[in-house]
Design a protein around this nucleic acid. Structure first.
Lengths: 344, 344
DNA sequence: TTGTAGGCGTTATCAC
DNA sequence: GTGATAACGCCTACAA
């Protein structure tokens, strides 16, 4: 059926000769409305092409049924997988998502935060931009008791829930694995150390070295952006080092794969001359040759988990999170790029 | 400043001893309000922490400022890049995005369509699911004159705008390139042929063969899903062919790279024994070895273009699109995987 | 079991 | 240049 004017509950009421209140209640399956009226109303609604008006509803209920998501960048394997997981859970629970990207800039992150606030999202899911240091822009949410869940790149704060993996442990394991393979000069390429993920991975790296009786060397730690291009640049940089590392642990796969490729193309054998390891289990890690040792990061599950907890919190389905930190399981995946003994 | 109750224009009005109407007008910079009152109002608004209520506004204006996006799957290079482009444009123009994925199933696509409709999006951007054949679920939008823009996987319909690339031309060029390299038995791995993108690529393949005087052979056309796993399966399938192709043109890079890898691992030389080509210029194409010949698909730009046109349409910024089809520039990128003469 | 009535925060239409 | 008032469509005390 095709109409131009929107049908409202009043139209239905008039049509059925009952009150709008009864229509409203019937539509939301209110107990205390007779089966027969309910049925009548629901049928008429379908017939006349009624659709409920969320704005009126939200205005009245002071609730939006919308969840905001702020991520650094939509087009990365990690983020798109996490969002796919979030979308699934949100959709199942009747929530809408509004998504925006900070493009790794605090400035845009702040702007997005304000937009989300003005859109009156019921809750917020955030993975921080590369250079965010100050967290004041989230205060408006805390002040209004709007729940904020951070995932992956989080902010340690008692007022919010964090969903993360054990970056420290994984980095420790990777480094230890490289040591076990006989590597002596292990380089680590990290991201901005004010971001928990990179700080923790770096700490894991350092502790593994220490526990193996190695001394940490400043020249073997590079803090840098971790993009595709950056990987290539870093590869060239390593090629120019007089005293090269015999292993490189990069804090993400895209960067690792591109870095490795430059070095391989320059004639070095991998892992023979230099072993490599990355982080994330990006599909690229299984394509690059040799395949990249990495950490199996549960991206999709993290999205699901973060969203599920936010929604549980919103609907008050038990204050399940007595804690404010959820750590998902992740583990090291060993592949050829780091198997020194059995080099390709 | 921290309050618990939301400030409304009435609060501002009372505070300033003027009417709510004046406040409303001042806030939206209405001409015909004195500079001084405007300034007073705007300052008070900031001071008291006023934020406008979009629901009341939308309810009143019968407009949502929200655009719906339905994609097959969020976690793919193409989609996440396109969405990144859309988000940028939408954000610049003050629109919100609500995004959902069909997970390649018509059924979910229909459900998403209904949700979008009920959310009263001002417009819709869609890339179709793998198996969508019937388009009736979009009729509600057409009937209500809500603009729908299809991108990439489109539906030819006079009522909607399509943003695409010239899949036919690109596939033709790829195939011709393989022929020029001396390939004689060129296989094509396509996706569902009811989807324009795959149908067009297939048509380009066939025409290029024909124009070169080759006969099309049924056994050299495989229609299949194009995932990572599918790529591996297809690789195994090819290995079992008694009379193998000397080139394989796959309709997407992820599938191509995985397929190629299986064949390479089995000991065949690429492109020596079998040349390969893909489609999309996914980052994976520059990592896999040999690097994959492919088509440089402007994903991000397509997202921008689709969104920009939708918004122009919405704001009536000229009915620029006298046409209902926009074709973006894309071109073949030749890499080692298809350079038969100069095989690795 | 159903109806009445008021209000959620804005904006557009009249008036002045 | 400004104010009063009536919608927009829905929900929910409170009444009946």
């Amino acid at each position: 059926m095709k109409e131009d004017k929107e049908i409202t509950i009043y139209d239905l009421a008039k049509h059925l000769k009952i009150s709008a209140a009864t229509v409203s209640r019937s539509l939301k399956d209110h107990p205390g409305i007779s089966k027969s009226t309910k049925k009548k109303v629901q049928e008429a609604a379908k017939e006349m092409g009624y659709r409920s008006n969320n704005f009126a509803r939200n205005l009245r209920k002071q609730k939006t049924n919308t969840i905001g998501v702020i991520v650094p960048k939509l087009n990365s394997y990690f983020v798109s997988s996490a969002i796919a997981g979030m979308e699934k859970i949100a959709n199942e629970n009747g929530y809408n998502l509004i998504i925006s990207q900070s493009l790794e800039s605090v400035k845009k992150e702040i702007a997005n935060t304000i937009t989300m606030f003005n859109s009156r999202v019921d809750g917020l899911l955030v993975s921080l931009a590369y250079d965010t240091e100050n967290m004041e822009h989230f205060d408006v949410f805390f002040d209004k008791n709007i729940p904020v869940v951070f995932f992956d790149r989080v902010y340690e704060d008692s007022r919010s829930l964090n969903v993360i993996i054990d970056n420290y442990r994984n980095a420790y394991d990777i480094t230890k694995h490289l040591i076990d393979e006989g590597c002596k000069r292990i380089m680590h390429i990290a991201g901005n150390l004010t971001r928990n993920v990179y700080a923790e991975r770096c700490r894991g790296y350092k502790d593994a070295l220490r526990d193996a009786g190695f001394e940490f060397q400043d020249e073997l730690l590079i803090v840098n952006e971790l993009s595709e291009e950056a990987g290539k640049e870093l590869g060239k940089k390593i090629l120019q080092m007089p005293n090269k590392p015999d292993a490189v642990f990069v804090a993400n796969d895209v960067c690792a794969a591109n870095c490795m490729q430059i070095i391989k193309t320059a004639g070095y054998s991998i892992p023979g001359d230099i072993a490599f390891a990355g982080f994330n289990n990006d599909p690229i890690s299984k394509i690059v040759e040799p395949h990249l040792t990495t950490v199996n990061y549960p991206c999709y599950e993290m999205g699901e988990m973060a969203m599920r907890n936010l929604i549980d919190h919103l609907t008050g389905d038990g204050n399940i999170s007595t804690t404010n930190k959820i750590i998902l399981r992740s583990e090291i995946v060993v592949r050829a790029s780091s198997l020194k003994g059995k080099g390709q």
